[in-house]
């Protein structure tokens, strides 16, 4: 009995120490930790305090070309198009629906933000993004994105309480998918590995061959409900229903012109059929979906050595207007 009493007192003391530590931590090194490991959380915390609409995005939101005369981000443009509502971006490079899901889950009930706009990046459904080398760092960030006390999150981060897969293993997973996931085409385009071996543009020293390779690896896949990213978006739909948040998905534009020119029409058709599958799936779930998939011309894409969703001011404006229209309706 005496031992239980002693242990009980010490457990209470431990609780007091952890509580006090949490206060000290939040007042001291918490901000710098967030800056280093979970920079999107500070944007999120600002957003939930003062915005009506949160725009969850990765790098396309704020990738601005040096030649752009309009230096506004997509979210700033949207904000200007919707004068009665305040829109704030919760964004950083490389993040995806898995991160958005965790953040949406912790939007407090008393937050003025009652609408969430979530970017839907076609490339993020591909295995080269799902298992990109950035993923360990993203999983590490995710520890901070929940309602546990900040110091507990920091402690769990110190213990590597997140999924870590070595670069070598991630590469093996990607290669496996490229080799074994069937594509709806005849040989040699029946899987990514075989398709990449087709020498349309000569050998590997040709930059066109390299870029073609990137297009096939990033865009050639068949979407189904087993895709991890689809599961994340499904969860986002459920969370928003539960929290009574209005939800808008935005399918970002891809450079279909360049894709067709470098690879062929079949890849573009495959991408479009995947996109249609997404549209049908989420409209059937009652989600307001803004489809900008083929809305931006090749000339608006700023990255020329790798397929990306980085647009110049014209491209950003097209997406922002489409989203603003959906919000204002």
């Amino acid at each position: 009995m005496e031992m239980i009493k002693k242990i009980g007192i010490r457990i209470i003391l431990l609780g007091v120490i952890v509580t006090l530590s949490n206060f000290i931590y939040k007042a001291t090194t918490y901000k710098s930790d967030l800056l280093a490991e979970g920079n999107v959380l500070s944007k999120f915390e600002n957003g939930i305090e003062r915005a009506d609409i949160l725009y969850f995005a990765a790098s396309p939101n704020a990738s601005i070309h040096p030649d752009d005369t309009d230096q506004r981000t997509m979210a700033q443009m949207m904000d200007d198009f919707t004068p009665t509502k305040k829109i704030e971006a919760v964004d950083t490079g490389g993040i995806h629906a898995g991160v958005f899901k965790s953040l949406i889950e912790i939007i407090p009930e008393n937050s003025p933000a009652k609408t969430v706009v979530v970017e839907m990046n076609y490339r993020s459904f591909g295995y080269s993004w799902i298992h990109s080398t950035l993923e360990n760092a993203i999983q590490k960030q995710l520890i901070f994105y929940n309602n546990r006390p900040a110091i507990v999150n920091r402690f769990l981060q110190g213990l590597n309480y997140y999924e870590t897969i070595s670069d070598k293993d991630r590469d093996a997973i990607i290669q496996h998918h490229w080799k074994n996931d069937s594509l709806p085409f005849a040989e040699p385009r029946n899987n990514v590995t075989a398709w990449c071996a087709v020498e349309k543009w000569g050998d590997w020293t040709n930059p066109k061959r390299q870029l073609t390779d990137h297009y096939i690896k990033n865009f050639a896949f068949v979407l189904n409900d087993q895709n991890p990213r689809i599961k994340d978006f499904d969860e986002i739909v459920e969370i928003c229903k539960e929290k009574k948040l209005e939800l808008i998905f935005v399918i970002l534009p891809e450079n279909l012109q360049e894709c067709e020119q470098l690879v062929d029409k079949d890849l573009v058709n495959l991408m479009k059929s995947n996109k249609d599958w997404l549209v049908n799936r989420y409209r059937a779930k009652g989600v307001d979906l803004v489809d900008c998939f083929d809305a931006v011309a090749d000339s608006c894409f700023t990255e020329r050595h790798f397929p990306s969703e980085h647009y110049n001011q014209v491209g950003r404006m097209i997406v922002a207007k489409a989203v603003a229209n959906a919000i204002n309706q």
Binding site: I17, L20, Y25, K140, I151, R154, F155, G158, N160
Partner: peptide, 20 residues
Amino acid sequence: RWSIYALLIYCVMALSGPDF
């Protein structure tokens, strides 16, 4: 004794390396 524990607990929880 408990002040020392408190200091160590704080360090372990808040100041550990960013990776294990």
